[in-house]
Computed example of a mutant assay.
Amino acid sequence: MKPKVLVTSELPGDAISRLEAIADVKVHIGEHDLTKSQLIEQIQDKDAVISLLVNEIDKSVLQSAPNLKVVANYAVGFNNIDVDAATERNVVVTNTPDVLTEATADLAWALLLGIARRVPESDQFVRDGKFEGWKPNLLLGRSVHGKTLGVIGMGRIGEAVAKRAKGFDMEVLYYNRRQLSVKKENELNARYVGFEELLRSSDFISLHAPLTDESYHIIGKEELTMMKSSAYIINTSRGPLIDEGALVKALVDNVIAGAGLDVFEREPVLEPVLDQLPNVVLAPHVGSATIETRVEMANLAVDNVINVLKGLKAITPVNPEIVKK
């Protein structure tokens, strides 16, 4: 009998076809994500599940699936999964690191340039028929070249963002749990500094830290007040890294110059007023949204499932301490 697999959303590419060759696959198709009760109902007889960040895989969900062997998250993050509970049940948890690094770094820079040079405002200005010719003071933004970029969280994506700053002759400051090697710092032209120094010295701050209990609201009222009034903050990591209410107030009161956000604290719900502010660029969590990247993510998630179902090692396990017997 073939193993049974639940995929909580349609995926791009032909990865699902490869999975169907070795398993009975049920793909959730619909405009709305599975509710928790629907997920529990559908996962009960499954050997594997490919999940999205919006799918909460907690202890109760795991307990409802006695045959479950692997949860393959279609994302680099996995804060939607109770990894400890999965490990207790000998369930492998995997994610999709590396394949979305460059795409997410590109989007961070798109948001940075977009807010600094007021690109969305300019686009709307032209579409509204307001453009009547060149004027000296029309839609003035801020220069990016030669400024200081602060990177909070210097993992794969943080490094990719820092690497791109070299093309703009920017000074790069970074704050991380661990300092990089001297060789890596020289490659990135990056300098390790304390958290407060980064906040006070940077013209642009880009967040790339994972979401943990320690990093929750790492940027709040106090931190926003430390930033330059001319500074911008970019978040393509996890929404709850920023206290969204405090950010809205800071933007309204011009405590900082602006923000570029691809993720939100309670997405898809936005903090009231946020979508009405001219000094913020908003994107609907599309950091990895290139055709090439999303297909690679699907392939990696499916390959992880196939490996585990065949009794092989997962390619990108989050809990590698599990030894399949």
Results as ranks from 00 to 15, higher is better:
residue 1 M to A: 08
residue 4 K to H: 05
residue 5 V to Y: 02
residue 5 V to C: 06
residue 8 T to K: 00
residue 9 S to C: 00
residue 14 D to F: 00
residue 18 R to G: 03
residue 23 A to H: 01
residue 26 K to Y: 09
residue 27 V to N: 06
residue 32 H to M: 14
residue 37 S to Y: 01
residue 41 E to V: 05
residue 41 E to N: 13
residue 43 I to F: 01
residue 51 S to T: 15
residue 58 D to H: 03
residue 62 L to K: 04
residue 63 Q to E: 15
residue 65 A to N: 00
residue 67 N to V: 00
residue 72 A to L: 06
residue 79 N to G: 01
residue 80 N to W: 01
residue 84 D to G: 05
residue 85 A to E: 10
residue 89 R to H: 06
residue 91 V to I: 13
residue 91 V to A: 02
residue 102 E to C: 02
residue 102 E to A: 14
residue 104 T to Q: 03
residue 105 A to W: 08
residue 113 L to T: 11
residue 116 A to P: 13
residue 119 V to D: 03
residue 124 Q to F: 10
residue 128 D to G: 02
residue 128 D to S: 09
residue 129 G to H: 08
residue 133 G to D: 14
residue 139 L to H: 06
residue 139 L to P: 13
residue 143 S to D: 15
residue 143 S to I: 01
residue 146 G to T: 12
residue 151 V to Y: 05
residue 153 G to L: 12
residue 159 E to M: 13
residue 163 K to Y: 07
residue 169 D to W: 13
residue 170 M to R: 09
residue 170 M to S: 04
residue 171 E to I: 10
residue 172 V to S: 09
residue 173 L to Y: 13
residue 177 R to P: 06
residue 179 Q to K: 15
residue 180 L to C: 11
residue 182 V to Y: 07
residue 186 N to D: 14
residue 187 E to H: 08
residue 191 R to K: 14
residue 193 V to G: 09
residue 194 G to V: 13
residue 200 R to A: 14
residue 202 S to D: 04
residue 203 D to E: 04
residue 206 S to W: 03
residue 208 H to D: 07
residue 215 S to K: 04
residue 221 K to W: 03
residue 222 E to S: 14
residue 222 E to R: 08
residue 224 L to G: 13
residue 225 T to I: 05
residue 225 T to F: 01
residue 226 M to H: 09
residue 228 K to V: 01
residue 228 K to Q: 00
residue 233 I to K: 12
residue 233 I to L: 15
residue 235 N to I: 11
residue 238 R to Y: 15
residue 239 G to R: 06
residue 242 I to Y: 12
residue 243 D to Y: 11
residue 244 E to S: 15
residue 244 E to Q: 14
residue 247 L to E: 14
residue 250 A to H: 08
residue 255 V to S: 08
residue 262 D to G: 12
residue 263 V to E: 10
residue 269 V to F: 14
residue 272 P to C: 02
residue 274 L to E: 05
residue 277 L to W: 10
residue 277 L to V: 10
residue 280 V to Y: 05
residue 284 P to C: 10
residue 285 H to W: 07
residue 288 S to V: 03
residue 296 E to D: 14
residue 307 N to Y: 00
residue 308 V to L: 01
residue 312 L to E: 13
residue 315 I to Q: 07
residue 316 T to R: 02
residue 319 N to P: 06
residue 319 N to K: 14
residue 324 K to F: 03
